[in-house]
């Protein structure tokens, strides 16, 4: 198993998530307007970052395994 690099990438993702999902970055998006297609900014931001995190994990795990 390629523990080294994948592990490092996952830890990086974890740190990025910790920062992106918490104060003070979170407060930048903590507003209802402007909305995106009616959905408040905060909701769009949190779910977008979440999707990107999960996507990133999948990429590291599934992509890293082949190379």
């Amino acid at each position: 198993m390629q523990k080294g690099l994948s592990g490092q990438r996952l830890v990086t993702l974890f740190l990025a998530g910790m920062v992106l999902f918490n104060f003070p970055l979170l407060s930048l998006f903590d507003r209802s307007a402007p909305d995106i297609g009616g959905v408040p900014m905060l909701y769009v931001y949190v779910f977008l970052v979440w999707t990107m995190l999960v996507g990133g994990m999948a990429l590291i795990i599934e992509g890293g395994g082949r190379s």
Binding site: F23, L26, G38, V39, P40
Partner: peptide, 30 residues
């Protein structure tokens, strides 16, 4: 989804739910 939020936005009581910092220490609790 957009429709639900747009309609809810008309009610100030519901609009309150769109953001986090309506209570004290919301970020700490988060």
């Amino acid at each position: 989804v957009g429709d639900i939020f747009r309609r809810a936005a008309e009610d100030p009581a519901l609009r309150r739910l769109f953001t986090l910092a309506h209570g004290n220490g919301a970020y700490g609790n988060w």
